[in-house]
Each structure stands twice: as C-alpha cells, then as structure tokens.
C-alpha cells in the first residue's frame, strides 16, 4: 500500500492509499463531527456534517470527508468560518425534525445552532441510514429498510423478519441519533406482531 502524505489542520498526516479524509483525520487524533458515519459500514455521505475545506491542485473546495479519499499534498481544514456556518445550518435543519436528540443538541451547542430557527417538522428520523445499513451490512438480516423518497422517506421494519430476529439483536437501537428507531420498532411490533414471549409472526 502506498503511503500518502497530506495536511490536516496544518498537521502532517500519513495515510494509506484509499483511506478517506475522515479516517485519516481520526487516525491522527483530529476530530470531525459525524452523524451517519460508522466504522463498520460503507461510507454513506448522508448527513454532510463531516464537510471540510480541501485545498489541492490549485483549487479550494468543500468536500464531504467521509466519502472523499485522501490525495497527495491535499491540505484539509476541518474548521473554518465557512465550514462552521454550513454545519450550523445543517444542524438547524436536522433539529427541525428531531429537536430533542441529545447528539444533535451537543453539536448544536458547539456550533451555535438555534433549534428554533426552522419550523418544527416532527419526523424524528434524520435519514442517517445507520439502522438500515447496519442491519444489511453487518447483521445481513435486512429487517429494516427505507420506504418512499424525498420528504416522505422513512424507515420501515419488515414484520416477518423483525418478529423473528429483532428481539435477539437490537444492536441498531443505540446507533439511532434520535431514538426514532426504537419508536418505529415498537410501533411495528404493536401493529404487526405480538410481544417477545410468543416470537411467532401473527398472520400479518
């Protein structure tokens, strides 16, 4: 593997070829905020919170660090006025959907985001896809998936699979930044199959 030398926040960082900027930063102990990133999962690039300023080949532009691979001599700035402003707006938009998420509130405090800037649209799910991807990629169970698209997009459990598998797993529950996943599960359970004792799917 070729080694690549780049700069992150003025610090020389060595990275393996094919690594993302986010991974390189983490390996050098530089923290970049993320919501949809998980070390065991294929990068998703959904929340855009890990956006950074990258300079190289004579240009400066904003790139999403969890999906941008490292390049020789790239100069990355993880905090700048522009980056902070974008993260603040992203957080404000997410907070309109999930105003009580502790993870979002912590980030909001750091970036000075106002949770009341946008009108509340209580969908609770912020579409980070952690549950859907964890279930598919790590557990290979596919008990939960996305349905619909755009502003109507939401997560949906497949009752036949969820009734058999979820009670023994629930590994995705702590991943959810907003606790909506747990609510969606309980909701599906109540509608489509009975409690943990029976373990058999009803005639959904």
């Amino acid at each position: 593997m070729n080694e690549i030398l780049l700069q992150i926040d003025g610090k020389e960082v060595r990275a393996r070829e094919g690594m993302t900027v986010l991974e390189a930063a983490q390996s050098a102990g530089i923290s970049i905020p993320t919501l949809c990133y998980h070390e065991k999962l294929v990068p998703f690039g959904g929340c855009r919170l890990c956006i950074v300023e990258a300079e190289g080949h004579g240009w400066i532009r904003l790139v999403v660090s969890c999906v941008y691979t490292v390049e020789e001599n790239l100069a990355v700035r993880t905090r700048s006025e522009k980056v902070d402003r974008i993260r603040k707006t992203l957080l404000e938009l997410l907070l309109a959907h999930a105003p009580n998420s502790p993870q979002l509130q912590d980030l909001a405090q750091e970036y000075g985001a106002d949770k009341d800037r946008f009108e509340k649209e209580a969908s609770f799910c912020i579409h980070c896809g952690l549950c859907v991807r964890y279930c598919a990629e790590v557990k290979k169970l596919n008990a939960v998936g996305f349905v619909d698209r755009g502003i109507k997009k939401e997560i949906s459990f497949i009752p036949e699979i969820a009734s058999k598998e979820c009670h023994n797993c629930m590994e995705c529950f702590p991943l959810c930044p907003t606790s909506w996943l747990q609510a969606a599960f309980v909701f599906t359970e109540a509608l489509a199959f009975s409690g943990p004792s029976s373990g058999t799917p009803s005639n959904e």
Binding site: V132, C135, A136, N142, A143, V144, G145, F146, V147, D148, R149, S156, I158, E160, I161
Partner: peptide, 12 residues
C-alpha cells in the same frame, strides 16, 4: 434481493 430493498425501490 432482500425484501427491504425491493420495498425501497417499489416505493421510490
């Protein structure tokens, strides 16, 4: 193909 994926596409 997992049903969750088909459902995603069929609703998309």
């Amino acid at each position: 193909v997992p049903l969750s994926r088909i459902q995603h596409i069929a609703t998309f």
